[in-house]
Design a protein around this nucleic acid. Structure first.
Lengths: 256, 256
DNA sequence: AAGTGGTCTAGACCACTAG
DNA sequence: TAGTGGTCTAGACCACTTC
């Protein structure tokens, strides 16, 4: 006698034809994007999710595996599964690849030089996936690593994603800018796209970084994305290449 | 009545206490590192592996999942699981991140300027994990992208990993240098570590790249690793940053 | 003791590939 | 048609956390 093969959710209308686990993963991702579970909060337990979605617990586990691989959630044995929060290690992985040439790996200290409201130019709009003339916030920061000015950052944020943001709120943030994105706006950066090139310091750049005009600068143009590949930040970084470098490891996974 | 819980391999001596799936993955990785299955060849089928290792097929699948994530193997439905080969897409992912500033994404054409036997200096030795004065091969290449010289490469290879390599063999290679590593020496690059900084072209660099002395150069110092995190190549690249840039995406995984 | 994630098993059916 | 990987189920036991 053959076994029943109960296909849960078989009556779901929009269920595409993707594997169940992927469908579950997308539904969970949407929930996080919509703020149903905020960064740091716990998702329902796997058995709860299994009965809620009407699938086997193994399918839930596979779905969550995908979210873990994306670093969208973190599992803690005996406690639960939590929406990823920006602990320092996560920051290091996703955002901060600049290290001292001598091997130093300090966390940067940020000083904000300027904060203003503006409208997007054509290049900003293309990078951020918004319309030209849409509102943006522009921020200029200097990042210090170990008592030395290392990086000059120009950041552009689509104002639509950061309702009510003001210079006061921005400057009053407790931790990093990513904590702000996350805690106040529930925005979690999942992917970044970076383009690097070499330039030479302009007079103004040299002054603000405390280096010589014409010194070698490493320029990084980065776009950060959240759920649904929505761009949340455009950042132009200029790194003092005399004392710092960009470090990148490809092909991770556990050893062997 | 409770179910039996047959723990296969329970008598294995060195079986550490790692999960079964990880043990299986490591055994498979060792087999590939030892050349038991060479790049492009098929592994035994999952059911064969399951009975060979004495574990459930689901455990084999989990082990292979890990190898797939590492890009050490590729699955093909209906055909089998194959040791990764250096198709162009894989190359693009692991090795080649330089693109035209206008968005061009061509494959590079390589011209070898020099090939010689030498001994490792202290810096080479440290990067490659070998002893100073160990034998190395040194190669200088110029890479051309779309009719323009783009990159000047200085490569150092530990001679111990490339027995019998000669300039003649090196120059007679059909495809890329990675095809050579793979087809002749069974070496598969799984991980790379890259450090980038900005410099200015020396007189010789300028001459060999056909650019102006003092022009902005993007310098990439890369170490490539194979199984067991063994370093197989040290490469110093200098990129014409006027016309090209380095492109990097972090946090992949399927969308959403 | 109860609840959570972590690992493993056993076996079903599906989809693709080849002879 | 036979064999391969791809998906899903159902349920066992293990390890960690909290009360």
């Amino acid at each position: 006698m053959s076994c029943m093969y109960p296909r849960a959710m078989r009556s779901r209308p929009l269920a595409a034809d993707r594997p169940l686990a992927q469908q579950v993963r997308m539904r969970l991702a949407e929930g996080m994007a919509a703020g149903e579970w905020k960064p740091g909060e716990a998702l329902p337990s796997e058995s709860e999710l299994a009965s809620a979605f009407g699938v086997a617990i193994g399918t839930i586990r596979k779905a969550v595996d995908g979210l873990v691989a994306q670093q969208a959630v973190v599992r803690r044995q005996g406690k639960g599964t939590f929406v990823a929060a920006h602990d320092p290690r996560r920051l290091m992985f996703h955002f901060f690849h600049v290290v001292g040439r001598d091997g130093t790996k300090a966390y940067p200290e940020v000083t904000t030089l300027d904060f203003r409201r503006d409208r997007a130019g054509p290049a900003d709009a293309a990078a951020l996936g918004i319309a030209p003339l849409d509102r943006v916030f522009r921020i200029r920061n200097v990042l210090t690593l170990g008592d030395r000015r290392a990086i000059l950052d120009d950041i552009a944020l689509p104002a639509a994603l950061f309702p009510g943001l003001t210079e006061k709120i921005f400057l009053a943030r407790e931790n990093t800018i990513y904590h702000l994105y996350q805690s106040r706006y529930g925005i979690n950066v999942l992917r970044t796209d970076e383009r690097l090139r070499a330039t030479q310091a302009s007079r103004e750049e040299a002054r603000q970084l405390g280096i010589a005009e014409g010194a070698a600068l490493l320029e990084i143009r980065r776009v950060a994305f959240t759920f649904r590949d929505r761009a949340v930040e455009l950042r132009l970084s200029r790194v003092d290449s005399e004392h710092f470098e960009y470090h990148n490891t490809l092909g991770k996974g556990e050893p062997l």
